Simulated assay, not measured.
Amino acid sequence: MFGDYSLGDLGSIFAMQGFAGLILFSVYVLMALGLAIIFGQMGVINMAHGEFMILGAYMTWLCSEFFAAYLPSLFGIYFFVAMALAFVASGSLGMLVEWALIKRLYKRPLDTLLATWGLSLILQQAYRSIFGPREVGVNLPDWMLGSLQVTDSIEVPINGLLVMALTILITIAVYLLIFRSRWGQQVRAVVQNRVMAGAVGIDTEKVDRLTFGLGCGIAGIAGSAFTMIGSTGPTSGQLYIVDTFLVVVFGGAASLFGTIASAFTISQTQSTLEFFLSGSMAKVITLLAVVAILMLRPQGLFTLKVRR
């Protein structure tokens, strides 16, 4: 596989594929952050998480079409508006789903898995009826196209750098929100002891709803990033839900740092292997490697120390 390349060529290939995997890494991080909040903090297995991501992708596409048709002079900033709208739309739908469905299924993980799987099928059909069965793609502003020339053989995509910078900012914001804010203290209190948290005056139902909405809203932002690496269709979310669960489990369900490290490891491994092998073989090898590591360390790469 590597015999036809010199050491210099291999270094350039690894660097190029690493930079090319920036957007995939950003999608994995944002998807896994939302899923880790919902699964790690609430114990809910959300099989419809990919559809919340695709809602964000469709909002980005609609925003692109609207700015191109009615506000062409502001087309250069539409992506930032689209990310905000994607967060609001996916988060609002998430809170509605939590109120109407999820709150009746807490502490019943198999029931939440089946219910959210059914929800994913409903959302797929809704997208197909509203937006049509064909896949759609967004047009990027001119300043987001192209790449930066680092060396003669290494180029860095501009949109990849932008999305990764936004991902870092969002990750920091989530960390501050969960671990450095009063609301984050309430979330962790509800996770540790729901009855005692309610006894001291915390509105546990409100905390659950906002937590689920936050996780779904972050998935919507991941959908905005997704539009840069693939076209958006009603079933596109299912292509990423397995990889996202893999990222969360591999990193450690309750570890924010583990989620980031896991997303980086899996995305870069997959991106590099795809250059030398087919996309399906890259996924198979990545999956086998992760399974082998989990057999040795079933709790994931990083775990939180808690009292039992």
Rank of each mutant, 00 (worst) to 15 (best):
Y127C: 10
F67H: 00
L169E: 04
S6M: 07
G184T: 04
V195K: 07
F226I: 01
F39W: 15
L145K: 04
V136D: 03
G237T: 02
V27W: 14
V138E: 04
Q41P: 08
M228F: 01
S64K: 01
S73A: 07
V27A: 07
L277F: 10
F25W: 06
L101Y: 02
A189L: 08
W183Y: 14
S236D: 09
T232G: 08
P234Q: 12
M47S: 08
F67A: 00
R188Y: 13
S73E: 07
V150I: 14
G237I: 02
R128A: 15
V29M: 10
Y70M: 00
V163D: 00
Q299L: 09
L114G: 12
M228R: 00
V138N: 03
M281D: 14
V156A: 11
F302R: 05
M196H: 12
M83C: 12
L71S: 02
W61E: 00
D152C: 04
F131K: 03
V207M: 09
R108H: 07
R182W: 09
V138M: 03
A173E: 07
R188D: 11
L85E: 02
V136Q: 12
V81A: 05
F131D: 03
V284Q: 05
V291K: 14
P157R: 00
V150E: 04
S236E: 14
V242T: 11
I178F: 10
G118N: 08
I102P: 12
A253N: 11
V88N: 00
P141Y: 01
M31Y: 13
Y106H: 09
R308P: 15
F276W: 06
F250M: 02
